[in-house]
Design a protein around this nucleic acid. Structure first.
Length: 536
RNA sequence: GUCCUCGUAGCUCAGCUGGAUAGAGCAUACGCCUUCUAAGCGUACGGUCAAGCGUUCGAAUCGCUUCGAGGACACCA
């Protein structure tokens, strides 16, 4: 529809001998009286041809011809508004019914290889509510982009080496010794979570105190294994399955990390100072240099991370998206610097920072701390509110809002959570379809011609466009906004119109209409990992 | 102190590559169940888009300044 109007307008513009080659903007006005489509081109042209926008609009309209457009109006200060025949909505209805779960699918991604890395929490604890947000965003984005024809790899980076894993091993050892009645101190940056105690207890339950002579390596491996298992079990329940897992250990085996540093040196990006080797990232994007090899000869966390991203580049993605908490934002400049220093294009990496989730309990902000184990876990969240509500809740918000998560509200399963509103629309339709279902699609629809029907059909029609925008702008919350509005239009339609009537043709067509609505709701929710219920 | 992100209705948030009268939900008030699910529908109330200046036909949207919130500034990861 848009395309037809644009083409006709372009003809009109060139017939006036105006030189204008930018993309014409056709928008959908908020007010219905301003038409189905609107164009601001006369306002744009005003400054180019130095004329009154109203007059330009009149000239454009005089030369405008497009059979699908029933009526054209000009409104101050110079908008051209188009009123369109509704047939395309009914054609689109057929399309939904034929394409079913593929309605909204496109190929704007054209097979571009995209890597999306998200959550990637260290295996030193249980996933918490912040991970739930990153997970919901990352997984939804992956689904949306796949739906739009991108070749997406979703990835989890496992930090299974380094200092924090030593601390993990020490922490488990300390807890185990404690249970065995032995004296052992928690390390300085020890982990105090219940899950650490649980691992120690399980060890004791199985082997009593016979493992007291095990070395640190044993506890590290045990802890990493157990905690990763927890993490991926939780994520799976949350609806997230990864295409690819990469571990820090594996990267260290695949690459000689000293070699990576040598590469940086060859390109002139390292220097020695105070017995340490530094990365000269201030010469690139960072405002400070950072240490790569410490005075004691060990590597900092930065080195394996540089190697990891080097590896991602070697895998040949067109674009890589990393999703981090905002507390890692300082890290971005370092990473991009390393990419550039190793001769790769830093623009291929896009880092999304999500604002941390503030937890509200009893009306007060709860300070979250992983080390002390004080936070709400993903598992608890799922158990309290269910996967659908949790996924929807997080998908609703754009990443850069400092959102509050009110635990009590979430637990209450109140209407505050719009997933119920959308699910309810789906369940209502399902209920009617259990009464009567139709599969054959007529050549022409004869009875779908009232205002409520057009309203909801217009929304259905908009779906593919919304999905594309969500993919291009990488904004999954556009999908939740959309599906909420669609559900609203259905509820409103439902309240005023009967589906099952005396009239057989009308009934059949009504059923096909709500079936298409249900399909669209399903497709939209599927993109954010929500499976709507047949009954409520 | 330097650097990021943010500030929209009482609350939680949309709207941001500039467009027409700034939108939802919750809360509040009032209507609507003899017919397909009332977890619903409808009406009302609610705004100095943090503040100021600028850019222009036009600014919540772009730029600068101020104020406020959160975060980052390790030879930790």
């Amino acid at each position: 529809m848009k395309e037809l109007i644009i083409a006709a307008l372009e003809k009109s513009i060139s017939s006036l001998n105006i030189d204008y080659h930018d993309q014409l903007e056709i928008t959908r006005p908020k007010q219905k009286e301003n038409g189905d489509c609107s164009c601001n081109i006369a306002l744009r042209l005003a400054s180019i041809v130095h004329d009154n926008p109203m007059l330009i609009a009149e000239k454009l309209v005089a030369n405008f011809s497009c059979p699908e457009v029933k009526n054209v109006e000009i409104k101050a200060p110079g908008f051209i508004n188009f009123f369109v025949a509704k047939d395309y909505l009914l054609e689109n209805l057929k399309k939904v019914l034929i394409e079913k779960e593929n309605y909204g699918r496109s190929n704007i991604g054209a097979g571009q290889k995209i890597n999306i890395e998200f959550v990637s929490a260290n295996p030193t604890g249980i996933l918490h509510i912040g991970n739930a947000r990153g997970g919901a965003y990352g997984d939804s984005l992956a689904r949306i982009m796949r739906f739009c024809g991108y070749d997406v790899t979703s990835e989890y980076y496992i930090n299974d080496a380094g200092n924090q894993i030593n601390n993990l091993g020490e922490s488990i050892k300390a807890r185990y010794y404690e249970i065995c009645g032995q004296d052992y101190h928690m390390p300085e940056n020890g982990y105090y979570g219940e899950e650490i105690k649980a691992i120690a207890k399980e060890l004791y339950d199985n082997y009593q105190d016979t493992y007291l002579d095990k070395d640190l390596e044993f506890y590290k491996e045990l802890g990493t294994k157990k905690l990763l298992n927890n993490i991926f079990t939780d994520l799976k329940e949350y609806g997230i399955n990864y295409d690819c897992y990469t571990s820090e250990k594996a990267i260290s085996q695949k690459y000689d990390l000293k070699e990576i540093i040598n590469k940086l040196t060859t390109h002139g990006y390292t220097y020695e100072l105070d017995g340490a080797t530094w990365f000269k990232c201030s010469a690139l994007y960072d405002d400070k240099d950072h240490v790569l090899i410490k005075e004691d000869g060990t590597l900092t966390y930065l080195v394996p991370d540089i190697a990891y991203h080097y590896d991602k580049y070697n895998r040949g993605y067109d674009k890589m998206i990393d999703i981090f908490g905002t507390d890692h934002h300082g890290y971005v400049a370092r990473l991009k610097s390393s990419i550039k220093a190793l001769g790769n294009d830093p623009d291929k990496l896009e880092v999304k920072l999500l604002q941390l989730v503030r937890l509200i309990k009893d009306g007060n902000v709860v300070k979250m701390s992983k080390r002390s184990g004080k936070s709400v876990t993903l598992k608890e969240l799922i158990d309290e509110v269910g996967v659908n509500a949790a996924r929807y809740y997080f998908a609703r918000y754009s990443l850069d809002t400092q959102m509050d998560f009110d635990l009590d509200l979430a637990k209450s399963k109140s209407n505050e959570n719009p997933v119920y509103y959308v699910s309810y629309a789906y369940a209502r339709i399902s209920s009617i379809l259990r009464e009567k279902d139709i599969t054959e699609i007529p050549e022409k629809f004869a009875t779908l011609n009232n205002e409520d029907t057009y309203n909801v059909l217009e929304k259905v029609y908009a779906f593919p466009e919304v999905v594309k925008t969500a993919a291009l702008k990488e904004l999954p919350h556009l999908i939740t906004n959309y599906v909420y509005e669609l559900a609203g239009l259905f509820h409103s339609y439902y309240a005023k119109n009967r589906i099952l009537t005396e009239n057989e043709i009308a009934t059949k067509e009504n059923i096909l209409l709500i079936k298409a609505i249900r399909q669209t709701i399903y497709n939209a929710l599927n993109l954010i990992g929500v499976i709507p219920p047949e009954k409520m």
